[in-house]
Design a protein around this nucleic acid. Structure first.
Length: 964
DNA sequence: CATCCGACACATC
DNA sequence: GATGTGTCGGATG
């Protein structure tokens, strides 16, 4: 068929009956050269999709092509909007096709419906089909529907909109208005823009007002509009204005603006606010509006995927299970109704027929009750986000609940029950938020999410009033009440959210000492050393234990798995209540250097004999049980510190002030004449190393002034150069230090490390490892070398201990027992949990002098392998042909290792321990394999023992030795 | 007094 | 600006 023929046939020939719609579609397929639906395409490409739904009337769509479009015909152009609403409503039953198409044959309107993308509309008039462009466009709808995906995402749109308004807010504040007033005003403007773009405000009223205003009239015009919105029956001129409420328009306050502000508003008013992403908008605005948060642009909103990773298992999964049960009840009841009706129709005896009819009616009632009962239950659901911010979790939860209700209604309709209007609304989501800006944004964005959902699914948003007050989003502290007790949370079946992370050591600085103290006092069961987020976990668990809450899902820092933080997960883990967890997820928001865990708790009473307990899932895999450190399988959280390992591993010194000096200055002091007390400066000048020097970079030559623990200020003052330096560089800072001993002992290092200094004593060498390091490596340092707090020293000089520590067994143990830091999630060595709990092989423990086991062949084998490893590794780090040894300017200090020339320097720069272990060349692997074998033999294990097996045996040894 | 941690901090590409 | 990888000192027990 030619385009001309097609147009001749159909032009001015609107549909007379349903069958001619199919004729039109088949003819169109012919024009486009695509196959029309046929019996062979059933299940993929069909006419009258969903016609089986038994309420009569239309099917879900007149034509449906899976994963491409839903297509609805209407006889008259005027009905096309109704047709669109219909395909929107049934989209979930049609697998959410990306294109929604409506037509009256004279016109074809294609609307895109891609998740997360802005919506686009393509109108094709019948005459357009003469042109190849229109035909290509339509053909693409069949063949490449994905190509319609708009480039611009709703996130892009929202960021633009939010950026414009953040600028406006900043300008208004710079003009001298208070931040809360600005926030309230700007929120109103935002809602006006949204409202007019979804036609809740008539006739582009706000945009017209902005374009008609100048700095002299804008404020007054705003007041007029706001006042009209605040009451039922309000008007602007002759135009009636719908009633907005919700606290946002409770008065007519507006702010004066200047010409620049108006230019900005005009730009913003032209954007399509109907499609902004409500959950993002809140966060982006919060940054712009809250003066305290402007500095942390790039802050932490939880992305939608992460939120659903929590909302799905915590809220939706149990509710879907309930709906499945209700649906089964409905299906059975309706089956019974059909059987009884059939019986009534075929039974002659009036009494019997009457009984059958009554049975049919009762069965129908049962089905209806199951359906409506579920809906009522859904309306009664309360989901609490006790740190809701601007409402990301609440928005997405509300949308998901509405999706579930809609899905249930479509299911019920397909089974033959009437489909009620959606009734789940914003009152189902409950929030607590400390920041007034954020709380108001949460309320506004929740309403926007509600209205958008209704529109997207083909329903009218409720009006009169358009907004209802959302007292369910409270502005207050969620963990500490005014009377110094833990804050109470509203009753909620489900709790979700992303509470604030604030490290324990930063709480006083950020929240004030009084608050931090009061918070800790309010939670006596929570140890003082926890992150702020831990109080939300503790509070949520209290709600579960009290039977007030069924399920909880929270985002926390991944530090929740270790240290003091872990204690808040101990009780839930003990009760077997952690039903799902993601132990260590990257954080997708740029700029936030953190990794997170997601922890989901279920009331232990939730498992019923019928439903059984849900199999726990850790990191997406089914496991038997999840421990407090968010691991499954072997639970190492119960390992104890071993007495035999105590007083061996020490953290290095912390200077607290500029005690370090350049090599040049140190050399000058060392070469200087003896001091008035007859002593050389070498008494108080030392070399030191930091973690970087061990692993990441070539060791720098670092020098530090060290008056040690026992020199008085008077005694120290005789070391003239160094003492003057401390006076000028350190004292001032120390005078204001919060700790008395640091103020008073300003010439001494912040920590005196008496324990370490005495343990190292006169050992010729000692073992060190970097606190945080990608690879758990151990090295030797010479006597006299000072280490900083980013290094741990092990006060042993024997190769056997070195070898045991450097074996894969101690490495595996330290990875499980230690904690992690940062985006790269590098492991951190924590002596009390990684070293002191580690059971050395019998007879080779750190409380035994090495000399005592020198004759033990097990010790000897380890020592040989360890010495060999160290020797060859040193030779790689400092090849003799690239490095020359130069004596220090005075005696008593280690030789300097200098590159022989520039080429050597360049090569040496690459020779760092981290680079070596990143590459892990064969020779190194071989040396480690030999060492591992010797250590395995010392434990009496097979050489190729699996890591899990070895860890289990280490745990067993730990239990024996600690007497547990 | 000693250990632990950082909605990190900073050097480097 | 993304990437890689470990500082430093306050705060708690």
């Amino acid at each position: 068929m030619t385009p001309d023929a097609f147009i001749r046939t159909w032009s001015g020939n609107p549909l007379s009956e349903r069958s001619s719609a199919q004729a039109h579609f088949i003819a169109l397929c012919g024009l486009l050269g695509v196959e029309p639906p046929s019996p062979t395409t059933a299940g993929r490409f069909e006419f009258e999709k969903g016609a089986a739904k038994t309420t009569g009337g239309d099917g879900w769509a007149d034509v449906w092509l899976k994963d491409a479009f839903a297509w609805e015909y209407k006889k008259a152009k005027a009905d096309l909007d109704a047709a669109y609403a219909q395909v929107q409503r049934y989209a979930p039953a049609l697998d959410n096709p990306p294109l929604l198409i409506v037509s009256d044959t004279q016109e074809i309107v294609i609307r895109t419906a891609f998740t997360g993308a802005v919506q686009e509309r393509h109108d094709i008039a019948i005459e357009d089909l003469r042109g190849a462009d229109a035909r290509d466009l339509l053909r693409r709808a069949f063949q490449e529907p994905r190509s319609f995906r708009p480039r611009r995402t709703r996130a892009d749109l929202t960021e633009d909109a939010a950026a414009t308004f953040a600028d406006l807010a900043l300008r208004l504040r710079q003009a001298g208005h208070d931040a809360p007033v600005v926030a309230h005003f700007v929120n109103r403007l935002v809602f006006c823009m949204f409202a007019e773009d979804v036609r809740l405000l008539p006739e582009k009223m706000f945009e017209k007002m902005v374009f008609a205003s100048d700095p002299g009239t804008f404020e007054e015009n705003c007041r007029t509009l706001f006042a009209a919105m605040a009451h039922r029956g309000g008007r602007v001129g002759f135009t009636p204005i719908p009633w907005f409420n919700g606290g946002l328009f409770d008065d007519d306050a507006a702010l004066p603006v200047d010409a620049g502000d108006i230019a900005m508003l005009r730009k913003a008013a032209k954007m399509d606010w109907s499609q902004i992403d409500a959950s993002l908008l809140g966060t982006l605005f919060e940054r712009g509006l809250d003066p305290g948060k402007r500095s942390q642009l790039g802050a932490h909103y939880t992305d939608a995927a992460k939120i659903m990773q929590i909302v799905e298992p915590v809220v939706l999964r149990p509710l879907k299970t309930e709906w499945d049960a209700a649906r089964a009840t409905i299906a059975a009841a309706l089956e019974e109704e059909r059987a009884a009706s059939a019986e009534a129709a075929t039974t002659r005896a009036a009494a019997k027929a009457g009984a059958a009819t009554r049975r049919a009616n009762r069965a129908h009632d049962r089905a209806t009750r199951a359906h409506l009962g579920f809906l009522e239950r859904l309306r009664g659901v309360r989901v609490l986000d006790p740190a809701c911010g601007s409402g990301n979790f609440l928005n997405l939860t509300l949308t998901a609940l509405k999706d579930l209700e809609h899905r249930a209604n479509l299911d019920a309709e397909a089974m033959g029950l009437p489909r009620p209007a959606p009734s789940v609304g914003p009152e189902c989501v409950v929030g607590i938020e400390l920041s007034p800006y954020a709380a108001e944004l949460a309320r506004v964005s929740t309403w926007i999410a509600e209205i958008q959902w209704m529109r997207r699914n083909g329903f009218e948003a409720s009006t009169d009033p358009i907004l209802k007050p959302l007292g369910t989003i409270e502005c207050r502290d969620a963990v500490l009440a005014g009377d110094g007790t833990p804050a109470e949370w509203p009753e909620a079946e489900f709790i979700v959210g992303n509470p604030p992370f604030l490290g324990n050591k930063r709480m006083i600085a950020e929240l004030g000492e009084d608050y931090a103290k009061a918070l800790r006092a309010a939670w006596p069961d929570v140890p003082g050393g926890v992150d702020l987020v831990a109080y939300w976990v503790a509070s949520a668990w209290r709600a579960v234990e009290a039977g007030r809450t069924r399920r909880v899902g929270l985002v926390t820092t991944n530090s929740i798995r270790g240290g003091a933080n872990r204690s808040v997960l101990a009780a839930p883990a003990e009760a077997g209540a952690i039903f799902e967890a993601w132990s260590d997820e990257p954080w997708t928001v740029a700029g936030a250097a953190v990794r997170v865990s997601m922890v989901m708790l279920a009331s232990p009473g939730e498992a019923t004999p019928e439903s059984g307990a849900e199999t726990p899932r850790l990191d997406g895999r089914e496991v038997d049980r999840i421990a407090a450190d968010l691991t499954a399988g072997l639970d190492l959280t119960g390992a104890f510190r071993l007495e035999e390992n105590e007083r061996v591993c020490f953290q290095g010194v912390k200077f607290v002030g500029r005690f370090d000096v350049t090599r040049e200055l140190a050399a000058d002091w060392l070469k200087a004449p003896k001091n008035p007390n007859g002593r050389p400066n070498s008494d108080v000048i030392r070399r030191y190393v930091t973690g970087n020097d061990l692993t990441k970079q070539r060791p720098a030559e670092r020098w530090v002034i060290d008056f040690e623990a026992d020199r008085t200020a008077d005694e120290a003052s005789f070391y003239e150069g160094p003492f003057e330096r401390i006076l000028s560089e350190v004292k001032r800072g120390r005078d204001t230090n919060s700790r008395k001993s640091r103020r008073e002992n300003w010439w001494k290092h912040g920590e005196l490390n008496r324990g370490m200094r005495s343990a190292l004593g006169d050992l010729d060498r000692f073992i060190v490892t970097a606190e945080v390091s990608k690879h758990r490596a151990f090295l030797w340092l010479d006597h006299g070398m000072l280490i900083t707090g980013s290094i741990y020293a092990i006060a042993r000089d024997d190769d056997t201990t070195f070898g045991i520590l450097h074996s894969r067994f101690h490495e595996a143990w330290s990875l499980r027992m230690g904690t992690f830091l940062g985006k790269g999630n590098d492991p951190r060595y924590t002596p009390s949990t990684t070293f002191e709990t580690f059971p050395f092989p019998e007879g080779l423990t750190p409380d035994i002098p090495a000399a005592n086991y020198a004759g033990d062949p097990r010790a000897q084998a380890i020592a040989d392998a360890a010495a060999d490893l160290n020797h060859k590794r040193e030779a790689w780090l400092n090849p003799p042909d690239l490095v020359r040894r130069v004596p220090e300017v005075v005696e008593g200090y280690p030789d300097r290792l200098l590159p022989i020339d520039d080429t050597a320097a360049k090569e040496l720069k690459k020779r760092t321990l981290t680079n070596l272990y990143n590459a892990r060349p064969a020779w190194l692997a071989g040396l480690h394999a030999r060492l591992d074998a010797a250590v395995a033999a010392a434990y009496g294990w097979p050489e190729d023992i699996a890591e899990d097996d070895a860890l289990a045996r280490l745990l067993e040894l730990n239990r024996e030795r600690s007497g547990q």
